[in-house]
Design a protein around this nucleic acid. Structure first.
Length: 757
RNA sequence: UGGGGUAUCGCCAAGUGGUAAGGCAACUGGUUUUGGUCCAGUCAUUCGGGGGUUCGAGUCCCUCUACCCCAUCCA
């Protein structure tokens, strides 16, 4: 049932796994909850992959829920687009699509309950006033006068809001939480607002609609969702999520929200607003324009669901805001297609080649797949004295390192013969219009006895039998890494070649929908515009082109050397002044206890730490050890818990154990841990667990020998000069003794043993 | 400025006190009838900076810095 044993897991899967292991939930339930107000994009694919992937990996289920709480922006066609996308990616969401609007009545009932508890009220402030009353990040807000309405009045008003008795904006329902909360989201958040617009599913049944913060947590709860994954910008909303479920006191199990970083890709925009602009302003042909980062766009471009999913897995799930390189996506589709699709020959910019010494015609058998793709399938390649090659594959004055056809350099026609240039025919303007060549009859592919060595094999098509096709060469939509809007569009994102020539089998046999056009890239039969009599191919992605790269390096572009603003000079850190009391403590710690400045200041600056330290000093005078324990271990505990389970005297006792070398510093941490768990005295813990330090070399030496024996590889590496491994050996010895060996002695002995040989 | 987050290679990203994973990109070299693929190899003495604790710190403590989110009747 659990498929990820031992594999690398993201932090969310770890949480799920732990919750399942601990029995917090018996089955994991996730959900993908888009708002149907636009086409889903690859950022949604990340969320789909996460939510459905977690459900699949842990034997749970994942719901598809339309978060349709805003009637003004949502449409049924977007629901279909979302369903299509999820289905295309290969996921199944059970019986039916769910809708937040299915729960409107139950949500309403929950709201009434809150009102009855005195935890929600109808506010009649204007929108502007509400904003004003909310305060700012630094100043607390103040509560509306309407917050004092009676439960009865609130109930009455809320019911009439529902019936549509009021104008939009006249009233809202708010939670009564805390207008001074540091988290702005908690300053009496709005729960319901009045909207008279018809909803695409519920029509005019409702005149009030729940806000995200109210609807989401409860919808999750209603559906039995256990893990509610959302993006980072909702971190501040989690507190409301919990408040609503806690205040309502819903019976367990209840869902919990976790946040992860949304996807960003360079040269790409993924904000819904900007995507809508591209479509509405006609910068692209629609939501499914092959340059769009929508799932529909990638799909029409020719990307496979597998490649998108692989991408989502590769980029991982974490909490750091990041921008993924679009090259990573491109690598995924190449990688997916390379071992799968047939190769055919297509010429985008034809240059005629007449083979002077060839007569008649023939058909050459050629495999659709290269030697390294273990697939069956061949086609016939018509060949005659008139063919076309790619204009780029001939050069009269070739640059250094050019492998293709030149006046002096023969080339192989892929699957066919080697040819040599005999004459270059030009028009009045000096443009090359034709090559007259000769072929070597004994150089035919597969039975080449000519002994001629060529540097490359190029694609070609037979002049008479080739088919004319339209090829759409797509490139990235934006020309800059971090595009802001239409001004950053790449003017060359689409180049249409109306009269490309392709070998006939690609059209007549149509062995697949996706092809590799030999040496050009991967292409897809456009699902919308392709006709048998007028084929249209979309370029999915180019092949990697190390020749182009090499040439680019040889003739570097006019360097756009912007002064790199990165890593600007570090700002002068401003240090916080100590208050007079802190200053006094600081000086006393230095003078009376002999603490070093760092330590003294750490303690002195913290009220609780200094009190603790001073109390501990009363039982034992080892100031430095105590201070270290307080500044490190106690400080950590204080960060975690308000109340400490141990007393200053116990820390003093622990310090004494360290100073007397009864235990090592390492064991001290273990003892401290135990102490903060149980509150027991350190001496007792040491005795009960047998933690006394081992300092006798006679006892340690055998352990060292064993460790060295068990790690011959590392021993060799160490002796070859990898001195970092010293720490490794010390660690192994310490581990073998349960951490009880005296580290100082272990270090000495390991060092000695390692030097021996 | 208050609160909530985040910082590990050019880009993602593992790592939870004991040898700094992996992918993409890049760079060598080999194979190749695709300048593709594949194969072999290189690519972090260092984890945002500075201090501290420890035999040992990316991991614990202190402190500073940078970036993201929050003051929609959007989600």
């Amino acid at each position: 049932m659990i498929r990820l044993m031992g594999k690398k897991k993201d932090f969310l899967r770890k949480i799920v796994e732990e919750d399942l292991r601990s029995g917090k939930y018996s089955q994991v339930v996730t959900r993908f909850p888009p708002e149907p107000n636009g086409y889903p994009h690859i950022g949604h694919a990340k969320s789909i992959s996460l939510n459905f992937g977690v459900a699949r990996d842990y034997g749970g289920r994942c719901n598809l829920r339309m978060d349709d709480t805003n009637p003004e922006t949502e449409e049924a066609r977007y629901v279909e687009a979302i369903e299509d996308a999820v289905r295309w990616l290969g996921f199944d969401w059970g019986e039916r699509t769910l809708y937040t609007s299915d729960y409107f009545q139950r949500l309403y009932d929950y709201a009434v309950e809150l009102i009855k508890m005195g935890k929600a009220y109808v506010d009649s402030l204007s929108e502007e006033e509400i904003r004003e009353y909310r305060g700012t990040v630094t100043e607390p807000g103040r509560r509306s006068i309407y917050a004092e309405r009676s439960v009865e009045e609130n109930l009455d008003l809320f019911e009439r809001m529902r019936k549509g008795e009021f104008a939009e904006g006249e009233h809202v329902l708010r939670a009564r939480i805390d207008m001074a909360a540091a988290n702005m989201k908690m300053r009496d958040p709005l729960l319901y607002r009045i909207r008279h617009a018809p909803h695409f599913r519920t029509g005019n049944a409702w005149h009030i609609y729940p806000m995200y913060d109210f609807a989401h947590c409860l919808s999750d709860y209603i559906e039995g969702v256990t893990h509610s994954f959302c993006t980072l910008e909702f971190e501040n909303n989690r507190e409301i999520y919990d408040w609503i479920l806690d205040t309502l006191g819903v019976p367990p199990p209840r869902p919990h929200q976790y946040e992860f970083a949304r996807l960003n890709i360079n040269y790409t925009v993924l904000s819904k607003r900007k995507l809508i602009e591209l479509v509405k302003e006609g910068y692209v042909s629609g939501w499914d324009d092959p340059r769009m980062p929508t799932i529909a766009g990638y799909r029409r471009r020719g990307y496979t669901p597998e490649s998108i999913l692989t991408f989502c897995e590769q980029i991982g799930v974490a909490k750091a805001n990041s921008v993924v390189d679009v090259a990573q996506l491109e690598a995924c589709i190449r990688d997916d297609l390379n071992p799968k699709v047939p190769r055919v020959m297509c010429v985008l910019d034809p240059l005629k080649v007449t083979i002077l010494n060839y007569e008649g015609s023939e058909e050459i058998d050629a495999s659709y797949y290269p030697h390294d793709v273990p697939r069956e399938g061949t086609r016939k390649l018509p060949f005659s004295s008139e063919i076309y090659i790619e204009r780029e594959d001939f050069s009269e004055h070739p640059p250094k390192g050019y492998y293709r056809l030149t006046p002096d350099q023969p080339v192989r026609l892929k699957h066919a013969y080697i040819i040599r240039c005999q004459e270059v025919v030009k028009d009045e303007e000096g443009r090359v219009v034709e090559i007259k060549a000769i072929y070597y009859p004994d150089s035919r592919s597969g039975s080449d006895t000519s002994g001629i060595k060529v540097k490359s094999a190029i694609q070609w098509v037979d002049a008479r039998r080739a088919r004319k096709v339209e090829v759409r060469l797509y490139d990235r939509l934006f020309g800059v890494e971090n595009p802001q809007g239409p001004e950053d569009l790449n003017p060359d994102s689409l180049r249409i070649v109306k009269e490309a020539l392709i070998e006939p089998a690609a059209i007549e046999e149509k062995p697949d929908e996706r092809f590799q056009f030999e040496r050009l890239g991967y292409f897809y039969t456009d699902p919308v515009d392709y006709r048998d009599e007028a084929p249209v191919f979309n370029r999915i992605v180019t092949l990697k082109d190390s020749w182009a790269k090499k040439r680019q390096k040889a003739s570097p572009k006019p360097a756009k050397s912007e002064a790199k603003p990165s890593k600007s000079a570090p700002k002068e850190p401003r240090s916080v002044e100590m208050s007079p009391e802190e200053q006094a403590r600081f000086e006393r710690y230095g003078k009376e206890s002999g603490l070093r400045e760092e330590l003294a200041s750490t303690l002195a600056r913290d009220e609780r730490l200094s009190r603790f330290f001073e109390a501990a000093l009363e039982t034992y005078e080892g100031a430095t050890t105590i201070a270290n324990l307080v500044a490190n271990e106690v400080a950590r505990e204080l960060k975690r818990e308000e109340e400490l389970t141990f007393a200053p005297a116990q820390i003093a006792a622990l310090a004494r154990l360290i100073d007397e070398e009864t235990i090592s510093g390492k064991i001290a941490k273990e003892v401290f841990e135990a102490m903060s768990q149980s509150g027991e005295d350190p001496e007792k813990i040491v005795e009960e667990r047998g933690l006394r330090q081992i300092s006798d070399p006679a006892e340690i030496l055998p352990v060292i020998e064993k460790v060295l024996e068990q790690n011959p590889d590392n021993l060799r590496k160490y002796r070859e000069g990898n001195e970092r491994l010293f720490g490794f050996f010390v660690g192994q010895v310490l581990k073998a003794t349960g951490g009880r060996a005296n580290p100082r002695i272990v270090n000495e002995l390991v060092n000695r043993e390692l030097k021996k040989s």
